Computed example of a mutant assay.
Amino acid sequence: MPDDTDADGLPVGQVSTRLGVTVRTLHHWDEIGLARPSLRTAAGYRLYTAGDLERLHRIVVYREIGLGLDRTRAILDDTGADVPGALRAQRAQVAEKIDHLQRLSAGLDRMIDAHERGLLLTAEQQATIFGPDWNPDWPAQARQRYGDTPQWQQYAELSASRSPEEWQAIADAVAGLDRALAAAMDAGVTPGSPEADQLVERHREVFASYFPLTRQMQVCLGRMFETDQGYATHYDSIRTGLAKWFRLIIDASARAHGINPDTATWQ
């Protein structure tokens, strides 16, 4: 507020400093009639009186709480305006914004956590969903191995929004595919047959729960299924030789789509 030396009014520069607004803003408020200085110097420069500063201070406060200029003008100029009611309405809007920002913050926390951990499930939840043979250290190992790849980023961002129930549905789909693969091998389904190709497509659809899988990527996975000890043990524990058979049907499907399995790369 002005002191005794402000009796003749303050110039716009000093008012700008006192209120923490720009000179351009003060000029704009003057031009639209929201806050006009009561005095002018002989040279035409604006001078703001104590009353002007009181009005400006209220404008700044209302702006800080989010009131628009039109609503601010109505409150200031209408002597019968329901100021408490207007402020309560604004408080309700602020509360909604706070709630929205809190939800955004929580979502960001989950996204960060998913990028760092991969799977936002407790060890107990993982065991319940993925079975007793599941190792809760696998997601961390996968991050160390693949954390700088686009596929890990896609996986993490999908993981961030998934509930335990959704993960259970994915686990059920994977288990169903494993059973279908074993049954097809038992039935003598041959690589390159329509039945085998359907299983290869089903695998791509199920795997899309983690990240989009191209046919070349699928060929690379097929190799891993047969040569990686962890994957090979998993499939061969379902049926002896299933890891190799799975790789063979993937390769046959790839050839049918113009891909040479011997030269396919992760792309």
Rank of each mutant, 00 (worst) to 15 (best):
P84N: 06
I75Y: 04
V94F: 04
R91T: 01
E157G: 09
S163Q: 03
A43Y: 03
W152F: 13
T122H: 01
G118R: 00
Y45I: 09
A95N: 04
L108F: 08
A43N: 08
G85E: 10
Y48A: 07
A92I: 05
P132Q: 05
I65Y: 06
K97Y: 05
W134M: 13
P84E: 08
R58G: 01
G80V: 03
L53F: 11
R143H: 15
A171I: 02
R63M: 07
A43E: 09
G66T: 02
Y146I: 09
E116P: 04
R55A: 05
T72E: 06
R63K: 13
D99V: 04
A142N: 13
A173E: 05
Y146H: 14
D70N: 11
V60S: 12
G66F: 01
L69N: 11
G147K: 11
D133L: 12
A156V: 06
Q151N: 14
S159M: 12
L121P: 01
L158S: 15
A106S: 05
S105H: 11
G85R: 11
W167P: 02
L53A: 01
A142L: 14
L101F: 08
I75F: 04
D99C: 03
R103D: 05
L119D: 02
E54Q: 12
L76N: 03
D99H: 04
S163R: 02
Q102V: 08
T72D: 06
V174D: 15
T149H: 10
W134L: 07
G80I: 06
A92Y: 05
T49C: 06
W167V: 03
Q141T: 08
M111C: 09
S163M: 00
W152I: 12
A114I: 08
L87K: 01
L69I: 15
I59W: 14
A123S: 07
Y146F: 15
A95V: 09
T49H: 04
A86T: 04
G68P: 07
H115T: 09
D172S: 02
E64N: 07
A160Y: 13
R46V: 09
Y146N: 15
Y146C: 10
L120G: 01
T49V: 09
V60R: 15
P150Q: 14
A160P: 04
D78T: 03
I98R: 06
G51T: 09
P139N: 04
I75T: 03
A89C: 06
V174H: 11
E165P: 00
A160F: 12
E64Y: 05
E124Y: 00
P132E: 14
E165A: 09
A169W: 02
A50D: 10
Q126N: 02
Q125Y: 00
L87I: 03
A92L: 15
E116I: 09
E64I: 00
G66Q: 04
A142M: 14
N135T: 15
W134N: 09
L53M: 14
T49P: 04
R110E: 11
E166H: 04
G131P: 06
G44C: 05
W152N: 08
D99P: 01
S105D: 14
L87P: 00
G80N: 03
G44Q: 08
D77V: 05
Q102T: 14
L53N: 06
P139L: 11
A92E: 13
H100V: 08
R88G: 00
G68K: 13
P164W: 00
L104K: 11
R110L: 13
R103P: 03
T122P: 00
Q144K: 10
R46Y: 10
A74S: 12
G107W: 02
D109Y: 02
